[in-house]
Design a protein around this nucleic acid. Structure first.
Lengths: 150, 150
DNA sequence: GTCGTTGCAAAGCGTTTGCAACTAT
DNA sequence: ATAGTTGCAAACGCTTTGCAACGAC
């Protein structure tokens, strides 16, 4: 479930912090929830612009900054740039195929050992969710092997 | 040793491919070798501009594209954007502290098990060198713990 | 002389900022 | 009425592109 919190709950969260609930913010939050997973600032701006008022891009950026600041959103770096997602989602790493661009993800729990390896080796506590992991998906790998062997 | 190949060797490599050796390319390659590790396109442009002809930024980008295309360079994604490095360097992952921006690296060999875990779990062959790994370095981690406990 | 390469200027794209108008409260 | 928000327009930083001049070979 991507939506542990509804759009209204998010906006309620903001109100408690002294922020105001505007139709623009409602539209932006709704759009991010509608996208499953993550979405880029540009996409949000485009999609929301189709809606009623025609939200300005600067408003989108200011809202994203605010929502990340209060802990509602976080951003990930993919090959195409930053993408925003709800913090409430289960932490996961993004696997992005460098060849075809397809995407998969893995729950962070399955990579606990990775954290330990890096912590032990460099005394560094990794956050594997912040950058994607690039690589080759299974179908591109197969396609590639075929070329090499024939 | 960052320089298994000298600037001349790189340019010789290009010549074989039918490319020409120009003073601009020589300056760019030299500058990347002078930087230890990686360097951004903007930094290259700035530093090389100080030199003789004042190499144009578009030339820098075109050269980087070419050198990556022929396998001499590769780029990594850090928080601040793409950075270029020599492909000949031993493969390593970049560890970037999200708090202080400090950087460390780990030879890829120390993370072979990570590859296996991800391959087994998702049939995805990761390239851990392409994106940095974000996280918290030891000193920021200590500083952070101190704040929490007092 | 050829053809690859460069500089220049312009444009593209994503993002940020100052400011006056607007509006949720 | 007040203070937070928005739209607009301009600016910004990085990167790309078209084209004529240049220069390595």
């Amino acid at each position: 479930m991507a939506s542990a919190s509804s759009a209204d709950e998010v906006l309620e969260h903001l109100r408690i912090l002294g922020c105001r609930m505007t139709p623009q913010r409602r539209a932006i939050v709704t759009e991010i929830m509608a996208s499953d997973g993550h979405i880029s600032p540009t996409e949000i701006a485009e999609r929301v612009s189709d809606q009623v008022p025609g939200v300005n891009a600067s408003t989108v950026y200011r809202t994203l900054y605010l929502l990340e600041d209060v802990g509602v959103l976080s951003h990930v770096h993919l090959e195409s740039g930053p993408e925003y997602q709800f913090q409430s989602e289960a932490p996961h790493v993004h696997l992005e195929c460098a060849t075809c661009g397809s995407e998969d993800s893995m729950p962070l729990e399955e990579l606990l050992r990775v954290r330990e390896v890096i912590l032990a080796a460099r005394d560094f506590t990794p956050d594997l969710t912040h950058f994607a992991i690039s690589g080759t998906c299974s179908s591109c790998h197969r396609a590639n092997s075929r070329h090499k062997t024939r």
